[in-house]
């Protein structure tokens, strides 16, 4: 039977994929995709714990995570558009203006 640990392992796998993406990506838009992967992985863990402990709190937290992710995307994409208009690229190495 599928238990809580199965879901938590899948969630940890997806989270580490997202983390690898965040560490590896240099393009800001792709960095956003990697953070979305991490947020979704956490949501799976919340829903699984909510199911196996018969408690609604996990689902509530998942709702708020989704709401925060939506507003993060709205503001973040606005900032990305402004950056792209200003620099013509979304590469983090190009945007680093404080080189020592």
């Amino acid at each position: 039977m599928i238990g809580l640990s199965h879901y938590l392992i899948v969630s940890a796998l997806l989270f580490s994929i997202g983390l690898i993406g965040v560490l590896r990506r240099r393009n800001l838009l792709m960095l956003f995709f990697a953070t979305e992967v991490m947020l979704n992985a956490v949501n799976i863990a919340f829903a699984a714990i909510s199911h196996f402990y018969n408690d609604l709190t996990g689902q509530m937290f998942a709702f708020f995570v989704i709401a925060i992710a939506a507003s993060e995307v709205a503001v973040g994409l606005g900032i990305l558009i402004v950056l792209y208009k200003k620099h013509g690229s979304l590469d983090l190495d190009d945007l680093a203006t404080m080189k020592g």
Partner: peptide, 27 residues
């Protein structure tokens, strides 16, 4: 789909509407 298996129907629908519908459209 995971959410629907776990019995969190409302969360699954919200995931479909907000993430797949709104966030990906925004992207």
């Amino acid at each position: 789909g995971f959410f629907f298996i776990l019995g969190a129907d409302f969360l699954g629908v919200v995931q479909l509407i907000v993430y797949v519908g709104a966030v990906m459209a925004l992207y």
